[in-house]
Design a protein around this nucleic acid. Structure first.
Lengths: 183, 183
DNA sequence: ACAGGCATGTAAATAGTTACATGATTCG
DNA sequence: CGAATCATGTAACTATTTACATGCCTGT
């Protein structure tokens, strides 16, 4: 069998706990894994079709009133595929942070403008932190142990990042001050 | 003017400090921004051509012996373009971490296997941390202030992440223990 | 002589986002 | 009634990686 796209496993993982429609999967992803693994409709719907053809999920019509709707359920094969993937060591660790990239090149700007880059980075992380803290109390400790562990990772990470930004902001301003006094 | 691809700015940023060939740009990226902004040959060479056509960089033949080689230099327009970009608030903050994704779904595995996911994550971050610490002493404090700030961000981040992994590993094993004793 | 690094480039494949089209239902 | 949300899907675009092809130079 051809290997599955990484996004396929997000779908299998989500379906392992409950039956969901494509629309609901997208909503779940946006509220949880999105911060370290996003997925768009453009991937979810075609992928559901492929998984269905491969026999890893099964769809059933389940209209809400007259609105047509297909809910998917994971099959035994799907669950095996998911577990086999979980047992492989993770390989993708990617980060694309435009803020860090700009800061890296910030020598091209005066300190007062360089510090703005870090401030923008901090504001973004503060917003994410607030968003994650909103989600936290919803989770039931027992029912969602690992999702909660991961969520708290996000909170702790953004806490650390915000603190780092604050320190760097001060550092840049202090260095600029010292330089000005020297001249 | 059409807006530039994000990778174009990596090139402009690198060329602002010194003239470089495409090959050298790739090497620089691999030793610095790669951890938060990668670029491959497949992007660098075509992008250099485009930037050259747009007048933001200028290439000059500079063969090493009989081996042909083109070094690029940033133009005044290129520098303006770079600064204008640096002044825009950063927008891309993406992360794709297969380890966190697997951990999120780890309920499908027994704790002894779930903990392996976290261990793999830790080993990866430990390796990155070691790599960054190797690079650190090379940097001259004054000549590369911002690159050093960013590098130390990477070290601190991986330090934090490794510590988080250790704590989660213990937590998972402790929970598994408690559950076993209960039955 | 040959391995490894320097050097440039392209083609194909894969990934992923965005925008759009369609239409039903629910809530205020 | 209109806006928001539920629901499914596709097309076009952008980004990016991987693999390959080519060939020179340096050190062993």
């Amino acid at each position: 069998m051809e290997s599955l796209s990484p996004t396929a496993y997000v779908i299998l993982g989500m379906l392992r706990r409950e039956q969901l429609s494509g629309y609901e999967i997208k909503a779940k992803v946006d509220n949880s894994t999105r911060f370290f693994w996003a997925a768009s409709y453009g991937q979810i719907y075609p992928e559901l079709k492929r998984l269905s053809e491969a026999g890893l999920v099964e769809g059933a019509d389940s209209p809400t009133g007259g609105r047509k709707r297909t809910v998917y359920e994971i099959t035994a094969d799907g669950e095996e595929e998911l577990k086999a993937w979980l047992r492989q060591p993770p390989e993708v660790f990617e980060m694309r942070d435009e803020g860090l990239l700009k800061l890296f090149f910030a020598e091209a700007l005066p300190p007062a403008e360089a510090v703005e880059i870090v401030r923008a980075m901090r504001h973004y992380r503060e917003a994410v932190n607030a968003r994650l803290r909103e989600i936290e109390p919803d989770k039931d400790e027992d029912e969602a142990r690992y999702p909660l562990v991961v969520l708290r990772c996000g909170i702790e990470y953004t806490d650390w990042f915000v603190d780092w930004c604050r320190r760097v902001e001060e550092q840049i301003l202090a260095a600029a001050d010292a330089e000005q006094r020297r001249s």
